[in-house]
Design a protein around this nucleic acid. Structure first.
Lengths: 391, 391
DNA sequence: CCTATTTGTTTGGTCCTTGACTAATCGCGG
DNA sequence: CCGCGATTAGTCAAGGACCAAACAAATAGG
């Protein structure tokens, strides 16, 4: 079971195929730095073990113009599946996807705001079991379960970070769920996973320099630099909710004034509208009313966008990303939010950074974090696929 | 001249030896992922070509306690040298160091503030020629010249970034100097190189998550995440001078209010003291007077520290680094600056980030950027060393 | 002194590359 | 339309790079 050079090569090929879908052998060779002949041999072995399938389709050669077309190969979708669980603001989302990154099942259950993690685990476990049954998946083919937890995540200790009041702080999420499901479980923060998902499936596909900003209950974020997700020393990298956008602004639960989170985020927007619109308001209502021309709702969303935009501008100056992706529930407001956001960001960023940066809504909507959890599992379990080889 | 597998392996070994100085063969094997036997063979070849020397010294084995001690090997210092040029606020610094990262010559010439880049190139070229002569170095053994340019650097186009008024903007620095010296020249921004130097020689040695902040004429910075220097898409990553620390603050040349640069930096500090102390003041004077108890000078430094500290706190929240290194001329003020800086940073950062972060003065002083330029050259020219092999 | 541990070297065999060859397509001119 | 060169994909054989395993050398700790 010691990993030989051949094992590492196979692993590199599998990983590449998972990340990029279908490729030709020559393409793979270029990307992993092996020769075409070696890759041919590896692919032949993987095909023999049903881990890889060769498609009818032909791929245009690399030179663009002339040349023999390559035969498309991809991971056999039947060789494994991964489950993503997203503990959201007031939902639990569950997704099953195969190694080809195709979503097979997506389920969701609504919970009361501020629900207890314990009940969350129970609900999630039921949901996962139901989804497995519905998908008809053999449990032995499930590579693992990924969990998305709201708020920052202490990567070193493997639990949601404490220090900020949160019902999740310090709870060993992976252990709890693994116990209920008897499956391997991985966990990480929602924003990191959202960024991962947007990079693999969504608006940041293939980007090596981008920022993901989640405008949800609170405000969080993550960023990819040099093609790698930044975690920082504690997993706190990218947590931008407490960037100060107005030093004279309202007090924040963190003890400072004018944090981004005191201006943006679902709870702030709703609370601003409550006096005039009552407390039966939902975000969906606010957005439709805004589109119908309601000045108050328009203003609430545009104010949030402006403040978020200032933060985006600052982040742009610091990180100089190619793109900023806005996710989370608030991003459903579309241009009502994004217009002011873009404007404020342009004003707050230097030309060097601002001109190079596009700002757009995430492409995955509410599924982002669950998809990211799946991507995390798939990213960590390529070895498992290979372990089943060479019987 | 195509790079074979063997070439790549040799390169990996040389690179590792350069970055880490002296190591045992077993150590090298662990770090580059080759077997001990292969490394032995590579080292033997390198020794035969005088690129590597074996020392008398023995290194304690990895396990700590028992075991045969390893034989220390290192790059042959005589196998190559690199030159670093730092175009500073009002100096040009030149350094020559060998592949073992040992500084052999350091020279410096003072120029008027805001000097013209053209004269800067002329002065630097003379200085470099003088240093080469003084060192008695055979020009064929010079691997290259690294240049540190003030302000952000557009990595993609290879010139100092425009957009901000600066005499350096858009000037093809490397080409200019290469023409005058007839040597290969590389260039990058001062802050990136300062960070590189502190990582290799200074206060951030070996750290994979840290921020470098240069408090000099203006304010700049850089950061390393996941062990890699962040550049962003245009090379603007880390440029923190225009982080907004007080939205109601004074107008900045960038068009915003309250940028860090309007509060911190040599010119701001000096201008604040000018009305009472006259315009003959130097930073050195201010610092000595402050140490002697002069309230005005103390306050000017502490104000700068406080504002810088707020920015450090915000950066800490966003990047969650292990360490923040303060460089640049102002850092010579020591605790007069750092005390208030640390205090403000602690207040502005979340516990998750703040508790994990140490803040300290850079260890390299005014040589930092020139050393970084040397490190850049050495980091890019390992291939050249090997090219001379196998005659 | 003896055991446990780690380094550096040797050796047979595995993995991978190089270089050649065939296969498949494009673009061109006829 | 066809044939032809140019270009790229995939495969095969020969040789080189690398590894695993075993061994000798050198130390620490009993």
């Amino acid at each position: 079971m010691r990993e030989s050079r051949a094992d590492r090569s196979r692993l590199a090929v599998v990983r590449l195929l998972r990340e990029r879908g279908t490729m030709s052998r020559a393409d793979i060779a270029r990307h992993v730095g092996l020769s075409r002949s070696t890759v041919s041999g590896i692919i032949a072995a993987l095909v023999a073990d049903d881990l890889v399938v060769e498609l009818e389709a032909k791929l245009t050669p690399a030179g663009g113009g002339a040349g023999r077309p390559g035969a498309a190969v991809m991971l056999n979708p039947a060789s494994g599946e991964a489950i993503g669980v997203d503990f959201g603001y007031r939902h639990v989302h569950v997704i099953i996807a195969n190694v080809a990154h195709a979503v097979r099942i997506a389920k969701s259950v609504r919970l009361p705001v501020g629900y207890d993690p314990g009940t969350g685990f129970d609900v999630a476990a039921d949901l996962v079991r139901g989804a497995i049954e519905e998908a008809g998946t053999d449990p032995s083919r499930i590579l693992g379960v990924g969990v998305s937890v709201p708020g920052p995540f202490d990567t070193k200790r493997g639990v949601p970070a404490s220090g900020m009041p949160s019902p999740w702080a310090g709870i060993p999420v992976a252990v709890e769920l693994a116990g209920r499901l008897n499956l391997p479980v991985l966990a990480d923060g929602d924003t990191k996973l959202g960024a991962l998902a947007e990079r693999r499936w969504g608006a940041a596909r293939g980007l090596d320099e981008f920022v993901y900003m989640k405008l949800h209950g609170g405000v969080g974020g993550a960023f990819v630099s040099n093609g790698q997700l930044a975690r920082g020393v504690n997993g706190g990298a990218g947590e931008i909710g407490h960037l100060v956008v107005d030093a004279t602004g309202p007090l924040c639960r963190c003890g400072n004034r004018g944090c981004l989170e005191t201006f943006v985020g679902l709870s702030v927007v709703m609370r601003a509208l409550e006096p005039t619109y009552g407390d039966r308001l939902t975000l969906r209502n606010v957005i439709t009313m805004a589109w119908q021309g309601d000045r108050g709702c328009i203003r609430a969303l545009s104010d949030a966008g402006t403040m978020a935009g200032r933060a985006v501008g600052m982040l742009g100056n610091i990180l100089n990303p190619q793109s900023v992706i806005i996710g989370g529930a608030l991003s459903a407001a579309g241009e009502l939010l994004m217009g002011p956001l873009r404007e404020a960001a342009a004003a707050a960023s230097l030309p060097l950074a601002g001109d190079a940066m596009t700002i757009q809504v995430g492409a995955l909507g509410p599924q982002a974090c669950a998809l990211g959890a799946v991507a995390m599992v798939l990213g960590e379990t390529d070895e498992k696929l290979l372990a089943a080889m060479g019987t």
